[in-house]
Design a protein around this nucleic acid. Sequence first.
DNA 1: GTCTATATCTTGATAGAC
DNA 2: GTCTATCAAGATATAGAC
Lengths: 235, 235
Amino acid sequence: MTTPRWEPRRLSAVAVELPEGVTPPGTRGRILLSALRLFAEYGFHGTSIRDLAGATGINSATLYAHFPAKEHVLAELVLLGHAELHQRLQQALVEAPPGPAAQLAALVRAQVGAHADFPLLALVANAELHALSPERAAPALALREQSRELGLRVLRLGVAQGVFRVADPLLAATAIGSMGMQVAHWFGPDQPYTRDQVADTYAGFALQLAGAVVAAPEPAPKTARTSGTTPVKKG
Amino acid sequence: MTTPRWEPRRLSAVAVELPEGVTPPGTRGRILLSALRLFAEYGFHGTSIRDLAGATGINSATLYAHFPAKEHVLAELVLLGHAELHQRLQQALVEAPPGPAAQLAALVRAQVGAHADFPLLALVANAELHALSPERAAPALALREQSRELGLRVLRLGVAQGVFRVADPLLAATAIGSMGMQVAHWFGPDQPYTRDQVADTYAGFALQLAGAVVAAPEPAPKTARTSGTTPVKKG
DNA sequence: GTCTATATCTTGATAGAC
DNA sequence: GTCTATCAAGATATAGAC
């Protein structure tokens, strides 16, 4: 592939950018940004060294002055994406009000926010990780596992405290994580939502999915007359 | 790539198979099954014609007696995957008890079931669709849109009938669909769940996410004493 | 339908001048 | 750091015998 084979369809049109402060200066940073766009659109194996160099405005040989191999470009993006998400999740937990409900909401807001702010990075980090050798994928996988456990811990704590009522915390954590992950695939400036609207709505979804008890610490009455668990805003 | 570069990591170990009655007889069918495994594991661009032929046990030239190009192999798998899902969703709606809640549960069970029964096919159909030219991706995209609308209609109907209480039906449908879609990435025989357990649990998640009112047609009492909406089984 | 053999092009990566 | 030039291997696909 030298000229695009067809118009991009894998993504909404979104800005090609990396989180603040992590783009290396100079040519190295420009290579990463080109790779971010091309890997997201065509995949790692669907992008050639020459595509990458051409998009960056340099000769293909110049790439090797900045990265020892094509795979290392991907490895850097994948690690960067997982690190950004994990950092945001940790930060969200630190800043969240106490209690599993507020913490779960904060985690989901942070996850959705990360995937909405940097959909290209999230897509590359998740969908192209498999193209890395195990050694170079390992650091990202470790971060992913840690991120996963943040959510699982909050869910289990909430169940133990009677704040959540969920059939299976592990499956619930998986389902909630899946919701947020997919945001990278469809969110963009063409959508009729802001990133905060999506993040807040998804946080509400997560609480409902987890059967969060809204305001009643005392046990529910024996008669099974129940209702929705969170305020609704109609859509 | 001729010999595997490293052990597969993109998937759990799952059987390589297509839905009943859709595998063509003879070599053509064997090619499709090889492609199913290789495209799922390494991606379309990560799999060469020779890989495909080698895995099938034929010469690379023989492939062209069955498919005019590599892309057509992928196109068939992608369409097949989308068709299978759409057919199952329609069937689920037909067989479901009346009412949006039962219908939503049936749709989610069908979606999760499809992704758990044929994770390789679901993964290829979703994750490799972008490698197709627009003309050959179009039929699958049309099916996907129809499947999406099945869920959206049920959700909107449920909201209109007061059975669901959801902030935004479109986002809810997206979130629910995302949950089920990801199942293909992690479910397998190594998991401590059966496909039905996952399907049923996810159906419950969807109902809770949608704020399904369980059994009370009469309005809830004014005091905001609410509780979970479905039985729990502790996990 | 299947093979051997091959054409043609693209790939990732390197050598060496500036 | 960046370039021109190039290598060796791998890519998709075809020709033609059996």
